[in-house]
Design a protein around this nucleic acid. Structure first.
Lengths: 290, 290
DNA sequence: TACGATCAATGCTTTCAGGGTATCAGATGG
DNA sequence: CCATCTGATACCCTGAAAGCATTGATCGTA
């Protein structure tokens, strides 16, 4: 096709051959072969002039397209391999949607506008499974410790706060000691859904020798807040979620509040070259937020 | 690219090679060469499994497009060469627009829906020039006799009628003898514009020894009718133009009315393969109209 | 754990597709 | 009529790429 285009544009075998870095005789043969293969005369030629047939004129348009798309494909595959283009599937837990994810996504979209970000909100356990399954390229979740096959970037530290209805007896207290919660009904996600969060809550109580009354274990953070609003108990949630919960709910600082690490994680052996830049953005956020 | 697609679809070197009608070792080398040329790893492979990298997955989409367009281009160029697709520039004189051209165009568009018809209304002399220059592929015009480099299909025979204002003295006569026109002011296109038409008119008069008073010589048939409507003279025009001239004008039969052949013409040596089918349609119209 | 089966990679040989040089043949202009 | 330009042909030769045989790695299985 490049041979054909060279001749179609120059209408001169010698110059077209030169453009293709070859001598005229083999070039003539190539053109003849193309015509023979297609079974179509593309050029009307005698020893003094070369002209396109109607079929050749039409073919020229098509060739221009095909060659252009071919070049684009070769360029793009290099861009994808370099991580400048492609797709990145990012999982994140609901807590992160309110804090670090928007900033992370915005910065990355600016740095890599041609990478399509597929966002997928999941529970922490789902995230872990999807990371090892390869369904996700990276994820924002709580640090649940040991994970040798994952690379980890610390994004932020979040303290837990307690939330309750504004008509709750403890609402008048400014800062709440754990002992005050001995008799409270607590709502918390099950360990199977959010191990890091749940274990932080459990440790917080057990350090004071308290066994919390966990009355409800919804899987979604959203549901927990709703249930607290209905007056079914109190809950310990990350500080970043305590703004804009809606009316009727208040949050209070906890004494020696448990701290959770929000991390960006990706498989060590990821094949997606778009991930590394994403991890770098994560590190830059870490520097500004800690 | 076909090698790449074969492997991307089968994910198995042996089967992909078989699909490409070659043995596995050279096929492996081809894939390796593609990766080396692009500088991009397209497959993740060990001795037990083959998988696409993200770059490979992206490249697969692009390759599918490029190969598809390539196939289309090869198919289309054959269609253009066979006359099933392409473009046909048809010239025609204004008289023909009212008679045979619509039918011709409609029949051809039905038979060759992928040929784009470019219609170009011109005066007969312009048409002749454009046919030899190759600006037109075919044309509907009056038969002006000798034209050895043109192929000709007779489409219809048209008698001339005379038109005049309805308040003209001759308007009361049903059929008009040429002698009656001896004193009339006649409006007719110049011989340089419509030689066949003008010479038919001239012969008609000179056969009776009359020299017509040609008072105005507009180039366009449209103008002639307008001038007759203004009462500036009478005119001899093809019968097919006499319907729907607008109010105030009438047409009358001429005794021994001159006859003109409306023909479809194309260069003998036309390179446009869409023309031959067009000439065939012309022949079929001839059979029905004569 | 050892063996066989599977599958991609590698080494070696061979062939022909395709490039180069020389030349021919037809057309054009001085 | 000759010089020149241009595309086509004839012939040769190189190296890209195909085939065959083999290796090496990884499973599954006895």
């Amino acid at each position: 096709m490049r041979f054909f285009m060279a001749l179609a544009e120059t209408l001169h075998f010698g110059r077209a051959a030169e453009r293709m870095n070859m001598s005229q005789p083999p070039f003539s043969r190539q053109i003849a072969m193309i015509e023979r293969t297609l079974g179509v005369k593309l050029f009307e030629r005698n020893s003094r002039s070369v002209a396109l047939t109607p079929a050749g004129k039409h073919f020229m348009e098509d060739c221009r397209n095909v060659l252009g798309q071919f070049e684009d494909a070769c360029r793009d595959v290099r861009l994808v391999a370099s991580g400048m283009k492609g797709e990145l599937r990012l999982g994140f837990m609901m807590h992160a949607a309110h804090s670090v994810v928007p900033e992370l996504v915005q910065l990355y979209a600016k740095a890599r506008p041609d990478v399509r970000l597929v966002l997928d909100e999941r529970t922490p356990t789902e995230i872990d499974e999807m990371l090892v399954a390869g369904t996700l390229d990276a994820a924002v979740t709580f640090d649940c410790g040991y994970a040798p096959h994952l690379q980890t970037v610390l994004l932020a530290r979040e303290r837990l706060r307690i939330i309750m209805r504004e008509d709750h007896p403890l609402a008048t207290v400014g800062q709440i000691y754990p002992e005050k919660l001995r008799e409270e009904k607590v709502i918390a996600a099950p360990a199977a859904t959010a191990p890091a969060l749940r274990s932080a809550i459990n440790s917080y109580f057990s350090a004071k020798g308290i066994v919390p009354h966990v009355v409800l274990e919804p899987r979604l953070q959203h549901t927990i807040i709703q249930l607290v609003a209905k007056g079914l108990g109190v809950a310990l949630i990350p500080a970043s979620l305590c703004t804009g919960m809606g009316t009727g709910l208040i949050s209070r600082t906890l004494t020696d509040a448990p701290q959770l690490d929000v991390v960006l994680r990706a498989p060590m052996t990821t094949k997606n070259p778009a991930v590394s830049a994403f991890m770098e953005i994560g590190k830059s956020i870490q520097r500004t937020s800690l």
